[in-house]
Amino acid sequence: MLNSIKKNLSKLATGTAMSMLAVGYAAPAMAEDLVVMLLPENVNARWESQDAFFFKKAMAGLAPDAVVEVFNANNDTAAQQRQAEQALTRGAKVLVVIPIDGEAAAVIADQAEEAGVPAIAYDRMMQSANTDFWVQADMFATGAAQAKHVVDRTEKGDTLVLLKGSPTDPNAGVIAAGQMSVLQPLFDSGERVMGYENWTPGWDPAIARRSMEQALTTLNNNVQGVVSSNDGNAGAAIAAMHEQKGLVGNVPVTGLDCTVQALQLILLGEQTQCVWRPFEEMATVTAKVTAALLKGEDATSLTQGTVTNAAEAEIPFVPVDYYEAVGTDGVAYVIEKDLSVSKEAVCDGVASDTDFCKS
Rank of each mutant, 00 (worst) to 15 (best):
P252Y: 12
P252L: 13
V253Y: 01
V253A: 02
V253N: 01
V253M: 02
V253S: 02
T254K: 00
T254V: 02
T254G: 00
G255F: 03
G255D: 04
G255E: 03
G255I: 02
L256H: 14
L256D: 10
L256T: 04
L256V: 03
D257L: 03
D257A: 07
D257W: 02
C258S: 15
C258N: 14
C258H: 05
C258P: 06
T259H: 09
T259D: 12
T259K: 09
V260I: 15
V260F: 06
V260W: 06
Q261I: 10
A262F: 05
A262M: 12
A262N: 08
L263C: 11
Q264I: 11
Q264A: 10
Q264P: 13
Q264L: 09
L265R: 14
I266G: 01
L267K: 07
L267H: 07
L267A: 09
L267R: 08
L268P: 05
L268I: 07
L268W: 05
L268G: 03
G269H: 07
G269A: 10
E270Q: 14
E270A: 13
E270P: 12
Q271S: 06
Q271E: 14
T272Q: 01
C274Y: 00
C274T: 10
C274I: 00
C274L: 00
C274S: 15
W276E: 02
W276Q: 03
R277G: 06
R277H: 07
R277F: 04
R277A: 06
R277V: 15
R277K: 15
P278F: 09
P278W: 11
P278A: 13
P278C: 11
P278D: 15
F279R: 12
E280L: 04
E280N: 11
E281D: 15
E281P: 01
E281C: 02
M282P: 02
M282W: 05
M282K: 10
T284Y: 08
T284I: 04
T284S: 14
V285Y: 08
T286N: 04
T286E: 02
A287Y: 00
A287G: 01
A287Q: 01
A287S: 03
K288M: 14
K288D: 11
K288E: 15
V289R: 00
V289C: 01
V289N: 00
V289G: 01
V289T: 03
T290S: 08
T290V: 09
A291D: 10
A291F: 07
A291R: 10
A291T: 07
A291L: 09
A292F: 00
A292N: 09
L293W: 05
L293H: 08
L293C: 08
L294A: 06
K295Y: 04
K295A: 15
K295Q: 14
K295T: 04
G296Q: 10
G296P: 08
G296T: 10
E297T: 02
E297W: 02
D298Y: 05
D298T: 06
D298W: 08
A299F: 05
A299I: 06
A299Y: 06
T300V: 10
S301E: 14
